[in-house]
């Protein structure tokens, strides 16, 4: 069976083609992406992002078919992101999916974006039943599977961790190309001094807005030198790199802590990191140290699968399609709010 996957819940438009053969690993036939990059100091607005997706979707679908050599008649279903995400870009992609469905006469499969990330992570890494940390610009969740649902054990109570990093990149006027978080990571590598930031973990939940407010204030002081230069307790001048370093060290320690608590709770020693922030090598390293202390292991993927992509939508959609799930045309809507635990995971025991 072959599925076409369309993803556009945020600023990436992804198209993927995947083949499932019983008893074999999934085969990635095509996985391409085009990203809407906003200028430094600015985020991506829903209106502009939707426009980007509308103008690129035809090109990407064509290219995907061409490079994979897949014929339209071989495709079994069209999978698209139903949610969660930004309304306008989700709608553009849903319209593209409906159009293709009618044009080619193929069934539609609406996919939960978070479940897409989890299933793709499991497929690529071979992690069987891990605790999942899903971290991106819009989501921060600690998830474990039980009784046909991906259950949320802990989550961000306000903004997502990726949003915290992205917005700090804007404060420092760092480039959004290829991604703000990537550029923060590179700067953090050069940071040496740890400045004190709030640490906000509550049980298995955490909060990032207060940390962002404090680090933003520090950045303002650092950039202006007012009311006085920003110094470390040792009297050294704090740099932009130090702030990136401190922000990463603090928020990642929080993420690792809540993940560890969930692992202790469910008695698992595997952890899988998915989502755009999951590309961050420092986060992967910290998670690895924690997992090692617990006698377990960490599973992570690279940017092809961590960052939003079409292949994960195709993969999760095809898993659901295999159990007989289809989304009728009149129900092929999209939604900004779609919790991970709302999906009945029929394809797992």
């Amino acid at each position: 069976m072959i599925a076409l996957g369309l993803e556009g819940s945020a600023n990436k438009l992804g198209v993927g083609l995947i083949r499932h053969t019983p008893g074999k690993p999934a085969e990635i036939l095509s996985n391409i992406r085009h990203t809407f990059v906003s200028p430094p100091g600015e985020g991506f607005l829903p209106k502009d992002t939707a426009k980007h997706h509308r103008s690129w979707v035809v090109t990407l679908v064509k290219r995907s078919l061409k490079e994979s050599g897949v014929k339209v008649k071989d495709i079994d279903c069209i999978c698209y992101t139903k949610g969660p995400g930004m309304g306008a870009p989700l709608q553009s992609v849903a319209i593209a999916a409906r159009t293709l469905s009618l044009l080619w006469g193929k069934p539609l499969v609406g996919v939960n974006h978070c479940v897409g990330h989890i299933e793709m992570g499991r497929e690529i890494t071979g992690a069987n039943n891990p605790v999942v940390l899903y971290v991106s610009g819009g989501n921060t969740q600690v998830i474990a599977y039980a009784e046909q649902r991906y259950r949320i054990f802990g989550e961000a109570l306000d903004i997502a961790v990726g949003n915290c990093l992205d917005r700090f990149a804007r404060t420092l006027n760092i480039s959004n190309d290829p991604a703000p978080g990537y550029n923060i990571e590179q700067m953090a590598k050069k940071g040496e001094n740890l400045v004190e930031l709030p640490y906000a973990v509550k049980g298995m939940d955490c909060s990032f807005s207060g940390i962002l407010a404090v680090v933003d204030m520090m950045a303002a002081q650092l950039l202006s030198g007012n009311p006085k230069p920003l110094l470390t307790p040792e009297g050294e001048l704090v740099t932009r790199e130090d702030l990136c370093f401190s922000l990463q060290e603090t928020v990642f320690a929080m993420l690792v802590e809540i993940t560890e608590r969930a692992m202790a709770h469910v008695g698992s020693d595997q952890v899988l990191i998915v989502g755009g922030v999951g590309c961050n090598e420092r986060l992967q390293e910290m998670m690895g140290l924690m997992a090692r202390d617990r006698g377990g292991s960490v599973y992570a993927t690279d940017e092809r699968f961590c960052i939003d992509n079409g292949i994960m939508i195709a993969h999760a959609g095809l898993l659901a399609y295999g159990t007989g799930f289809v989304t009728p045309l009149e129900e092929s809507t999209c939604t900004q709010r779609f919790r991970t635990d709302e999906v009945l995971v029929k394809w797992r025991d």
Binding site: L194, T250, V256, E285, M286, M287, L289, M290, D293
Partner: peptide, 8 residues
Amino acid sequence: KQYRHPTL
């Protein structure tokens, strides 16, 4: 915790 910065 090894994963945390020693100061933190």
